[in-house]
Design a protein around this nucleic acid. Structure first.
Lengths: 219, 219
DNA sequence: GCTGCATTTGGACAATGTCCAAACCAAAAG
DNA sequence: CTTTTGGTTTGGACATTGTCCAAATGCAGC
C-alpha cells in the first residue's frame, strides 16, 4: 500500500471518528509517522484529500446495482440497505455535506451530478416496481414525491441519527431508517410488495438482534 | 440597541450569508466598527455567540402555536409554514446543526430537549387531527412514522435545499417542501383534509407567483 | 559513481479563536 | 472639582490551523 493510499485510509478512519473539521493535518501526519508537508505533497489541499475519499464513496455506491429484470421489492430494499451501509463507511462525508458543498465548487458540481444520476435511477427503479405490480402509483406526482422523499432520507438519515440517535448502534439506526422507508412506500404497495417488505424487515431485525447479542458477549 | 444586541444581529446576518464557519470574528468586528476582543468580552467564545442566536430561534419557534381546539389541517400546515420561515431566518444554525452538536455539548443538550418537545407536540397535533376526522390513522406505527418523517423533513429540508435547490428562491423552496409534507400526509387524509390541503397549496403557490412577479419587477 | 526524478523534510506564512493586562470612559462619591 | 469605581474597549500576545516552498533525501537507470 503506497503512501497515498495509506493517507486516504487513515484519514477516512479519523474523519469518521471525530469529524473532518476536527482532525488536523498535523495530527493525521503524526499518526501516520510522517510530516505534514508529505501529505500536502499528495493532496495539496485538505479538500483534495476529502475529494479523494468522496470518489471512493461514489465507487462504492456505483457498485450497488441490481439487474433491471431482477428487481423486486425485496432486492430494492436490499439495495437501500447496502447504500446505507456505504453511508456508514463514509459517514464523515455525509455529516459534512453542507459545508463541503458550500466550500468546494468542484465537489459541489460532482456531487450534484451524482445526485442527479441517483435520482434518475431511483425513479427508474420505482417505475419498474410499478410495472411489476409492486407499486400502485397512479400519477406522476406520486412518483416525484417518492423520489424526493427517498432522496431526502437517503442523504440525511445519518445526520439525524448523529444528533438524535447517538446512543443507538449503527444496526439499530439503519433498521430505524429502513423501516421509515418501508412506511413511506406502504400506502403505494400491493399485497405482494407488503409481504416482501415484511419479510425483509423481519430478517433485518433478527440480524440486529444477533448483532446486539454479539456486542453483549464482547462487552 | 446595546453592543451585545448589535453583535448578535450582525452575526446572524453574516452567518446566514456565508456560513458560521466562514465568518471570522475579526471580519465581524470590522463590519461592526469594533475590535475582536470587544466581541469576546460579551461572548467569550464563538460558540457562546452561536448559542445566543440559537436561543432566539427557540423563542421564535415557541411563538408558533395554535390553540388545540382550533387545530385544522389548514392551520397545521400554516404552522409548518411559519416554522419553515423561522428556519430561513436562522438558516445558518440549521445548516451547521451536525457540527454544532458534535462540538458544543451544552448546545447539544439544549437542542435535544427542544427536539423532544417538538416531537411530542407534533405527535399531539397529529392525534388531534385524527380525533377531528382529518387523519385516518389506524395504528400507533403509522403515527410514529409520520412524526419521524416530519421531524426529518423539518430539520433537514433547508440543508437539502442549500445543496440541491440553490437556484430556487426561498419561496419556491418552502413551497416544494410543504408540498412534500402534504404528499406525505395524503394517504392518511380524509376528504375534508384533502380539500383543506389543496386550498392551502393553491394559496401558497399564488403567493409564490406574486413573489416572483415582485422580484421580476425589481430586477 | 553519477544523474535525474519522485519523495520527504523543516521551516515559514497568514488567518483563526482565545486570552489578558492596560487604557478608556462615564457616573457616583468625596 | 477631583477621585474612585466598575463596566467597556483596546492592543497585543498565544497556540493552532491549512498552505506553501526551498532544500534534503532516497532510489532507479545509465
Amino acid at each position: 500500500m503506497g503512501t497515498k493510499e495509506k493517507i486516504v485510509v487513515k484519514a477516512l478512519e479519523m474523519f469518521n471518528e471525530r469529524g473532518i473539521e476536527y482532525v488536523g493535518l498535523r495530527e493525521l501526519a503524526a499518526v501516520l509517522g510522517m510530516r505534514v508537508s508529505n501529505i500536502t505533497y499528495y493532496f495539496p489541499t485538505k479538500d483534495d484529500l476529502v475529494y479523494a475519499i468522496a470518489q471512493e464513496l461514489s465507487r462504492s455506491n456505483a457498485a450497488v446495482i441490481v439487474e433491471r429484470d431482477r428487481l423486486t421489492m425485496r432486492s430494492f430494499l436490499e439495495m437501500m440497505h447496502q447504500v446505507f451501509q456505504n453511508h456508514v463507511t463514509f459517514r464523515c462525508l455525509l455529516l459534512s455535506v453542507v459545508h463541503l458543498m458550500a466550500q468546494n465548487k468542484y465537489m459541489a458540481a460532482a456531487y450534484q451530478q451524482t445526485q442527479n444520476v441517483r435520482n434518475a435511477t431511483m425513479r427508474a427503479n420505482l417505475e419498474i416496481l410499478r410495472a411489476s405490480g409492486y407499486l400502485t402509483i397512479q400519477e406522476e406526482g406520486e412518483l416525484s414525491f417518492l423520489v424526493s422523499a427517498l432522496s431526502l432520507i437517503s442523504r440525511f438519515w445519518i445526520s439525524e441519527a448523529a444528533v438524535s440517535f447517538r446512543e443507538m448502534s449503527t444496526e439499530e439506526q439503519i433498521d430505524h431508517y429502513l423501516t421509515l422507508v418501508t412506511n413511506l412506500l406502504r400506502p403505494y404497495c400491493s399485497s405482494k410488495a407488503k409481504k416482501e417488505m415484511q419479510e425483509f424487515l423481519s430478517d433485518l431485525q433478527s440480524k440486529v438482534l444477533s448483532h446486539q447479542e454479539g456486542a453483549g458477549k464482547q462487552g
